[in-house]
Amino acid sequence: MAKLDIKQHVTDTIVAQIEAGTPPWRKPWTGDIAGASFPLRHNGEKYQGVNVLMLWATAMMHGYQSARWMTFKQALELGGCVKKGAKSTKSVYYGTYEKEVDGEAETVRVVKYFSVFNVDQIEGLPEEYYIRPEPPRDLGTEANPELDSFFDAIGAEIVTSDKPQAYYDPKNDQVHMPPVATFYDAAGYYGTLSHEIGHYVLADHRIGTQKKFANRAEYSMGELEAEIFSAFLAVHLGFEPHFDQTAAYVEGWLKALKDDKNAIFKAAAQAQKAFDYVLGKQSVAAVSEAA
Rank of each mutant, 00 (worst) to 15 (best):
K3W: 07
K7W: 00
Q8E: 13
H9D: 13
H9M: 06
T11P: 05
Q17D: 14
Q17S: 15
I18M: 10
E19V: 02
E19H: 02
A20M: 04
A20L: 04
T22F: 01
W25R: 01
W25M: 09
G31W: 01
F38N: 11
L40K: 13
E45I: 07
V50C: 11
W56V: 11
A57N: 08
T58N: 12
A59Y: 07
A75R: 03
E77Q: 08
K84D: 14
A86I: 02
S88R: 07
S88L: 00
S88G: 08
T89G: 04
K90R: 13
V92P: 10
G95E: 07
T96G: 14
Y97S: 13
E98G: 12
E98D: 15
K99D: 13
E100M: 13
V101D: 03
G103A: 08
A105L: 08
A105E: 12
R109W: 12
V110F: 09
K112I: 03
F114S: 11
G124Y: 05
L125P: 03
P126V: 03
Y130W: 05
Y130A: 14
I131Q: 05
P133R: 12
P136W: 04
N144A: 06
D148H: 06
S149T: 11
S149A: 15
F151K: 00
F151A: 08
G155E: 10
G155V: 06
A156C: 12
I158R: 02
T160N: 01
T160C: 04
S161T: 11
P164D: 04
P164V: 08
Q165W: 10
A166K: 00
N172P: 05
N172M: 14
Q174W: 02
F183Q: 13
F183P: 13
Y184Q: 13
A187N: 14
Y189Q: 02
Y190K: 09
G191Q: 10
S194Y: 07
S194N: 08
H195D: 09
I197Q: 02
G198C: 10
Y200L: 02
L202Q: 04
D204I: 07
H205D: 15
R206W: 01
R206C: 05
F213C: 14
N215F: 00
E223F: 03
I228L: 00
I228M: 10
F229A: 03
S230A: 12
S230D: 06
F232S: 07
V235K: 05
H236I: 08
F243R: 06
D244T: 11
A247W: 01
G252V: 00
G252H: 00
W253H: 02
L254M: 14
L257H: 05
K258G: 02
K261H: 09
I264C: 10
A268C: 09
A269Q: 06
Q270H: 12
K273M: 14
A274T: 13
A274I: 08
F275L: 02
G280S: 06
G280I: 12
Q282D: 10
S283D: 15
